[in-house]
Design a binder for these strands. Structure first.
Lengths: 170, 170
DNA sequence: ATGTGCGTTTAGTCAAAACTAAACGAAATA
DNA sequence: TATTTCGTTTAGTTTTGACTAAACGCACAT
């Protein structure tokens, strides 16, 4: 392989890996997660923890933690090699699965906890509403109305995420 | 107003505000942003910077910075009060606008920069591909194929965000 | 059993982000 | 012009969380 080809391939890899790290960073997951995925995505063969760490210049511990996150999102798959005790990983190249099991699943969880909070607030308020009139009854009802509106919106979004049509589009 | 009513109203407010802060925090924006929005959302009248800061127990500077972010997302609106030099703010209760101008807009920007990076990587690689054969031609083509696939997925998602049908559902 | 080679856990470090206090500039008031 | 009252900027502090080195536990081999 010519020197220029090699250099350009390395440059391409490096750029893509940096971009991956930058992207996950901007979404609030660390930088390493994106870098690992990008590295595996462009790598023809599965890689082990040590090689990944060496390639990216980070510790094995970081790789271990990050790769478990990626596994939980179905973004990488373990690859068994007979006679080798090490764990090898390759990227899940099917972005649809990645989207469904990763991003959307996370979104769902966050929506759930948010929804639970709203419900909790609502029920606390309902107790107050059932009592005989007080001198700030109006305000009480304004808050109740807003909470109700928030819950409606929450339900709409939740419904959207479990809508089979929407899920098919993604 | 009875004491129990007052207590419960305050408890409801507090819980809702904390939940709001927690939510925005989990999405990588600060805690204060969500707290301010939640406070304004449950507050019948527009509030000024100082009152917001006092209510949440944070400095006016923090409120100033955060509320400009909220304004950029159309999540709050300025409310002019004649004869008062202070800026008053109220929550945008239309969640659809909020979604469109806030979350989706942000998503669009991140997709754009990610797409630009992929394109850049692709063009760097294309130069190498146009050269005569080298001894790692195969690997070069694997990387090229992966980049192409990534770009396709990126385009699909971008298209989805500007799809009028999808935009209408949201 | 003992040693070796893994992945994981933990305790600690360090850098980046959040947040504050204080200084500042602009606009209204006197 | 001097003063007051805002919102913003800035410089410094605190907090958070990313990351590492080292210890650990487990499984297999000898």
């Amino acid at each position: 392989m010519s020197l220029t080809q090699k250099t350009r391939l390395q440059a391409t890899r490096k750029r893509f890996i940096e971009a991956g790290g930058h992207t996950t960073q901007s979404f609030g997951f660390g930088r390493i997660i994106g870098q690992i995925y990008a590295l595996l995505y462009l790598h023809p063969e599965p890689m082990c923890l040590d090689d990944i760490g060496t390639e990216l210049g980070v510790s094995k511990a970081s790789v271990s933690i990050s790769i478990r996150q990626l596994e939980a999102w179905s973004a990488v798959k373990r690859h068994w090699i007979k006679g080798d005790r090490r764990d090898f990983y390759e990227a899940e190249t099917n972005f649809n699965n990645l989207l469904r099991n990763g991003l959307l699943e996370m979104l769902r969880k966050k929506l759930d906890t948010a929804g639970a909070q709203i419900t909790l607030a609502e029920s606390t308020l309902t107790e107050a509403l059932n009592e005989p009139n007080g001198d700030e009854r109006d305000e009480l009802e304004v808050v109740a109305a807003r909470l109700k509106q928030a819950k409606q919106f929450h339900n709409r979004i939740s419904g959207l995420l479990s809508n089979p049509l929407v899920n098919h589009i993604l």
